[in-house]
């Protein structure tokens, strides 16, 4: 069951110069639930997540654990358990898998870091097999696992995944899907930004549809599955 509200966004607007990327977006994420933001390429999903994790300045309000995000820097937010896996993954290409994971767990004490490493390697056995491999030499799917693994090393309270299935083979998407369900079973709160509507609806408790920088629709996964517009435009079932 969802708990207290972890993330509250009210009337969020983001501008790139004079161009408005997001307009008065409001949403919330409760503890323990999986929320997904879906929408086409360029709709503003990445901008939304980047403003939430402190990477972009914004107008309006974004409160994480009751505190305004803009009052803290990215590092402080990471320390408070807000971890963000970006669309580009932003891995350290010349570091090995193990070194990338250690960077993600740098705030933790030695024993806690070792525990998190075991946890990540259990969740993604492929990473365990490739501990000494440099990130830049890995496949896209493995890099995605590493990006999620690095974020998990930070012991998140809220994990934001931006396009976790983009460009991945179906078999890898299944692995990512299994990991998301494992994280759900542990009670981790997740915010997914996805173009892959099927994946999003498979996992999310609630969804928001973003188009051209505004939220056009919100509801539960069932409501989305039964919505004619969503079915026509995003799932392709009539």
């Amino acid at each position: 069951m969802p708990g207290e509200t972890l993330l509250e966004v009210d009337d969020l607007s983001v501008f790139y110069g004079s161009s408005q990327a997001l307009g008065e977006v409001s949403l919330d994420v409760d503890e323990g639930e999986i929320v997904s933001v879906i929408g086409p390429n360029g709709a503003g999903k990445t901008t939304l997540l980047e403003s939430m994790s402190g990477l972009l300045p914004y107008e309006g309000s974004v409160r994480y654990q009751g505190q305004e995000v803009s009052e803290r820097n990215v590092r402080a937010l990471v320390g408070d358990g807000l971890l963000h896996c970006t669309e580009d993954r932003d891995l350290f290409p010349f570091f090995t898998v193990h070194q990338n994971l250690l960077m993600g767990g740098q705030r933790l004490g030695r024993s806690e870091r070792e525990e998190r490493l075991d946890y990540v390697y259990d969740l993604f056995p492929r990473l365990d097999e490739r501990r000494s491999q440099e990130a830049e030499t890995m496949s896209g799917g493995e890099q995605q696992m590493l990006a999620i693994g690095r974020a998990l090393m930070g012991d998140p309270d809220l994990l934001m995944l931006d396009e976790p299935t983009q460009g991945l083979a179906p078999v890898i998407i299944e692995d990512i899907s299994d990991a998301v369900e494992e994280l759900r079973s542990e009670g981790l709160t997740l915010l997914l930004a996805e173009q892959n509507t099927t994946f999003a609806m498979q996992h999310a408790d609630r969804l928001y549809l973003v188009e051209t920088g505004t939220i056009e629709l919100s509801g539960t996964d069932e409501e989305f599955k039964n919505n004619d517009y969503v079915r026509d435009a995003y799932i392709g079932i009539t």
Binding site: S53, L55, V74, R75, V78, G79, L83, H84, T86, R89, D90, L91, F92, P93, F94, F95, Q99, L102, M103, G104, Q106, R107, R150, A151, G154
Partner: peptide, 20 residues
């Protein structure tokens, strides 16, 4: 190691908790 990491990607380093 944080200097090395930041040289590779500043954004990645920030998101991993590095004090850039």
């Amino acid at each position: 190691r944080n200097i090395l990491a930041t040289s590779m990607t500043e954004k990645g380093a920030k998101l991993a908790g590095t004090n850039v």
